[in-house]
Simulated assay, not measured.
Amino acid sequence: MAAQRPSLFTRGLSSLSQSSDPNSPSVTTPAEQRDDAKRNFLKAMRPLPTQHYWNVWFDRQAKDQQSNNGEYHAQLEQLGTQIESVQDFWRYNNNTPVDQIKMRESIYLFKSGFKPIWEDRRNILGGSWTFRVPKSIGPDVWTRVQLLAIGEKLQDALETGDQICGVGLSVRFNSHLISIWHRDSSKKKSIDALLEAVLEDLPPELTPKPDNYFYKRHMDHQGFTVPPELQAVVDSHKAREAAAAAKAKTDEAAAAEPAQPTPSGPEIVEVPPSGEK
């Protein structure tokens, strides 16, 4: 008795006909079968969510025609839909050619609820690191910094109570300015750790020179204006910073003073009672 030939198991595979009749309408070509398998595979893939939702902002800075000193005013707008997954990020990033952003224009990737404005309530007490890189490597550095943001590596570097707001890229004449914003500029450990996290991630060919990056508080920018409703918040923050600086200076001075020897008391001499020798 001849051995029975095993049949091909096709249960659950769409568009694969189990009919051997070549005239059957359900029979598809190998190319069509591959396309169907690819579509089914992509449908089965679940998006990898980001820990936070992110929004893309674009800042068109038009020259102010009413100003004689060449000042610029911002025209900020939110672009596209909210980024909620890694797939969403790559869809946005792969379709946003940085090399087509014009002079003095900026693009930002910020957490939902934050706006890339110094005077925003959530940003006003914060600051940012800015990295100046050549335009030839700007897009690569920008992609890496964005991934550090949505991957929470920047957030993990911060002190407790501090928070990443977002990252940005601004176009200048021969360079890109890439910035990283956080909420609390009074946290020195956060500032140092952010820089370390970025420099550790960038390969040597993308690492900016030490004189091409700097940190600055938002309120120290020339164009910064405190909204009246937040004036008390800023004043209180400055008072706390001044008190902390004064205490640190006092502690430093005390630590620098040489230790004074402990004065010894008068020597006590025991006098024998009268008549004793």
Rank of each mutant, 00 (worst) to 15 (best):
G12Y: 01
S15H: 14
L16I: 15
S17D: 04
D21H: 07
P22W: 03
P25N: 12
E32T: 14
F41D: 11
F41Y: 14
K43I: 09
A44P: 01
P47Y: 10
L48R: 14
P49I: 08
T50Y: 03
H52L: 08
H52N: 11
N55V: 02
V56H: 04
R60P: 00
N68M: 04
E71H: 01
H73F: 03
I83N: 01
R91E: 09
N94H: 08
D99V: 03
Q100N: 10
E105N: 13
I107H: 05
G113M: 11
I117S: 10
D120K: 05
R122V: 04
N123H: 05
L125T: 13
G126Y: 08
W129D: 01
K135I: 06
K135Y: 02
P139Y: 02
D140F: 07
V141G: 03
Q146I: 09
Q146A: 12
A157W: 03
I164Y: 00
G166V: 12
L169F: 12
F173C: 12
I180C: 09
R183M: 14
R183N: 13
K189T: 14
D192R: 13
E200S: 14
L202T: 07
P203K: 11
P203F: 11
T207N: 07
N212S: 12
Y213C: 10
R217G: 07
G223N: 13
Q231C: 07
A232Q: 15
K238W: 06
A239N: 12
A248I: 08
K249G: 06
E252I: 00
A253K: 13
A256V: 06
P263F: 07
S264T: 14
P272Y: 06
